[in-house]
Write a protein that binds this DNA or RNA. Structure first.
Length: 757
DNA sequence: CTTTCTATGCTTTTT
DNA sequence: GCATAGAAAG
């Protein structure tokens, strides 16, 4: 009896096919993690491959850790801890820390997070005098990030820039690259880009890793982007033992540059690739899978597959409507409480999933009201919270004063009377003399022109020096306590209202706990833990990484956060048009956006093992105004017999939710139709609907000012040329050949095309 | 230099 | 509805 006997046919084949490129199309819940762990075990145990010759790339640190543990359990004492299991990002950091000097950076580079990037971009736009009302920094950041994910350099982008706006963005991009290089800093995308650059610049380094990683595994392959593809192709070029696992139906990171073509064209790119499909689902009941299949079948261009399960349906999938988001939340929480109190269910086996983080709030409030312990995953990442970043800023400055952004952040936090003017003066001096900001501040006494600030700056520098000395004789947890005490951080908290201050104190306490855990790892070796490596670890953690299975709390998270997880009982909430699918995806006019939303729905549905409930609210507060929503098209795509509809009956006289079908979403025939309990598809009821109604008739002042052959621009798709127009008015079907996204057809009323002169 | 007031714009989704 | 940014006042 071997450990491989428990695998089904295709799973076994996937484990045993070790040489050459392999694509494992693994449907949701089909045991892909099992396959990967068994495959790695097989390589080590049966084929005698040395563990450090194996690479496995996962999507999150949590998944990496779990995989390592599971392999170790399968084959104890086989050295499984030497297998490289990590995310793309941490793998790249590891490589770059060793070799980035080959491309001109120092190996002690700092990693900038989104906030850092934002303040850099902001500074540059101010310097270049670019009006942020014309181009906001968020969209500039997006363009830069998109470029990097497609390996488009600043110079290349500049060459391609056509209009004023793009030229301006190009100049920001160029400045941005210069500044990061000058600061010896990399942003998140750079971690991947620079690794590719390194490989191209230094064949020796590439060769080393090619030889080292004889067997390469990539999980969640459907969500890889171009850089990641380039990275993987280079690494696998010699041994060609590349095993990728993914599911095109679960690709949900297109907005981040993920290219579904990576998985769809794998067989063409890697010649002779073996394709193995895993279609038996071991997670969900057949009833849940039927619903998942029904929804996802509305997407085009997918690899054909149909998940099945031999788990019998315990309870049909339910759909419940509520008057508003508050009753939705309390209704769901009450029901969960009942299942725990009288049904003997574990709270930790239930999850509430929603489209946007903002939706967590009403559920949190309901939990507090009913005394349900919960954990919100995501939202503002723990390490991105202001108070945490403040303390980390101190730690970075203590570790080395090289990170100017960190110094800027803390120099007047808490308030020390060192204002922007003084900091700018020091920054100019630093730039002129090739110093870091910290070094310049340390010389404040010798630089004329600081006036009264000089003494305050010296006070700050001395505080850092004292802490620096302390850092050499205590662990990180103690150091953090000292930072908080010495700089009197508490004085900042006292300015806030008690509730906020308390939550910040709790966060700081949690940071100390995390540091203490880290300290403990070093205790056995009787070494002081390195501040640098602590900061490094902290820079790359995702929120999901910190979820402990043992905690037994109700989990609240976005659909994106739920990827790769499973729960006995799942509530998929906010199933409303313009919430899910999101407003932006419905107005963009790009059908691919809706398809991505639908895949997200598929991911959500397939998280449930036994019980699944979909809920919707008829009205919801969005941006401070009450909006009326129709039931999500994804609910309507589920055939009548598969769904148990609950909640208030609509359609009674006087109700604004009369069942009335207007087919406002185009090809009306495909939408489920009216059935009791589902409010109609007519968007034109109640107040505040004017801004919800995106249909062609909105406003009545619709004008098309472009014609065939004209250059136009689209909010999401960029620029293109109109190649055909069919019909007139808002219903006119416009065919546009976009410069970067190919030919698309869209309704003029939806597309909001702008004519370019 | 800091605090307070007012305007604005904003929400997808995240390693 | 809230958080943030910038202006105005202290």
């Amino acid at each position: 009896m071997s450990i491989y006997d428990s695998l089904n046919g295709p799973q076994k084949e996937a484990v045993l096919t070790t040489d050459g490129p392999v694509l494992i199309l693994a449907g949701a819940g089909s045991g892909k993690t099992r396959v990967l762990t068994h495959r790695i075990a097989y390589l080590i145990e049966e084929l005698g491959v040395r563990p450090f010759n194996i690479l496995a790339i996962t999507f999150t640190n949590k998944a990496a850790q779990e995989m390592r543990e599971r392999v170790d359990k399968l084959i104890p004492d086989a050295g499984a801890e030497d297998v490289w299991v990590s995310t793309f990002h941490s793998m790249c950091v590891r490589i770059l820390r060793r070799y980035i000097d080959r491309i001109g950076y120092e190996t002690g580079f700092t990693i900038y997070d989104q906030d850092d990037v934002k303040s850099i971009v902001k500074g540059i736009m101010k310097r270049l005098d670019i009006d942020t009302k014309l181009v906001n920094e968020r969209s500039v950041m997006k363009v830069i990030s998109d470029c990097k994910n497609d390996l488009i350099s600043a110079a290349e982008f500049e060459k391609e820039a056509v209009d004023m706006k793009e030229k301006k963005i190009a100049s920001v991009y160029r400045e941005y690259e210069d500044e990061l290089f000058k600061n010896n800093a990399l942003d998140f995308d750079d971690l991947l880009v620079k690794t590719v650059e390194l490989f191209d610049a230094s064949p020796k380094v590439l060769e080393y890793y090619q030889n080292r990683f004889r067997y390469i595994h990539v999980d969640e392959y459907q969500d890889t982007n171009s850089v990641q593809f380039e990275l993987v192709s280079r690494l696998a070029a010699v041994h060609k033992n590349l095993c990728v696992v993914g599911d095109d139906d679960q690709s949900i990171y297109r907005f981040r540059g993920a290219d579904i073509r990576n998985i769809l064209s794998f067989e063409q790119v890697f010649k002779g690739a073996k394709v193995i499909k895993l279609e038996q689902n071991y997670r969900s009941t057949q009833g849940i899978l039927d619903v998942a299949n029904a929804v996802i079948s509305h997407n085009k261009g997918r690899k054909s597959k149909r998940l099945w399960s031999d788990r019998q349906t315990v309870e049909p999938v339910r759909f419940t409507t509520f008057p508003d988001q508050k009753t939705e939340a309390s209704g769901v929480i009450t029901e969960i409480k009942r299942h725990v109190d009288t049904g003997g269910e574990r709270l930790g086996d239930t999850a509430i999933l929603y489209r946007t983080n903002a939706q967590s709030r009403s559920f949190e409030e309901a939990c507090l009201l009913k005394n349900i312990p919960y954990k919100v995953v995501g939202g503002v990442n723990f390490y991105h919270r202001a108070e945490i970043k403040d303390i980390l800023g101190y730690l970075k400055t203590i570790a080395n004063g090289r990170d100017d952004l960190a110094v800027r952040r803390i120099v007047n936090m808490p308030k020390r009377g060192i204002g922007d003017a003084s900091v700018e003066k020091a920054a100019v001096f630093a730039a002129e003399n090739g110093l870091t900001l910290y070094e310049a501040l340390a010389m404040a006494e010798e630089i004329p022109g600081f006036g009264r600030s000089a003494g305050k700056i010296t006070g700050f520098i001395n505080q850092i020096r004292v802490l620096k000395a302390k850092s050499r004789e205590m662990g990180i947890a103690d150091l953090i306590r000292n930072v908080i005490d010495d700089v009197e951080y508490e004085s900042e908290l006292l300015k806030l209202d008690e509730e906020q201050a308390e939550s910040k104190r709790e966060n700081l306490e949690e940071l100390i706990n995390k540091a203490a855990e880290y300290d403990q790892k070093y205790e056995e070796s009787e070494m002081l833990p390195s501040l640098d490596s602590f900061l490094e670890e902290v820079a790359l953690v995702a929120d999901i990484d910190s979820v402990e299975d043992s905690e037994n709390r109700l989990l609240l998270m976005t659909l994106h956060g739920a990827k790769g997880l499973e729960f006995e009982r799942v509530y998929l909430c906010g199933m409303e048009e313009d919430v899910f699918p999101s407003y932006l995806s419905t107005v963009s006019g790009d059908p691919a956006d809706i398809e991505e939303e639908r895949r997200l729905a598929y991911v959500g549905i397939t998280r449930a093992k036994t019980y699944l409930t979909l809920t919707a609210a008829q009205t919801r507060m969005v941006n401070g105004e009450t909006q009326f929503h129709n039931v999500s098209r994804f609910v309507k795509e589920i055939p009548d017999g598969m769904l148990k509809v609950e909640g208030e009956r609509r359609g009674s006289a006087g109700s604004p939710f009369k069942t009335s079908r207007t087919g406002s979403y185009g090809s009306s025939g495909s939408f489920g139709g009216s059935r009791p309990g589902i409010f109609g598809t007519n968007p034109g009821f109640g107040k505040d609907v004017s801004n919800l109604f995106k249909g062609p008739a909105a406003g009545g002042d619709f004008v098309i000012d472009y014609a065939e052959g004209d250059r136009v621009s689209h909010a999401m798709m960029g620029q293109g040329t109109v190649i055909a127009m069919d019909g007139s008015g808002p219903d006119c079907t416009v065919t546009v050949e976009f410069d970067t996204r190919g030919v698309k057809k869209m309704k003029a009323g939806f597309a909001k095309l702008k004519k370019l002169l």
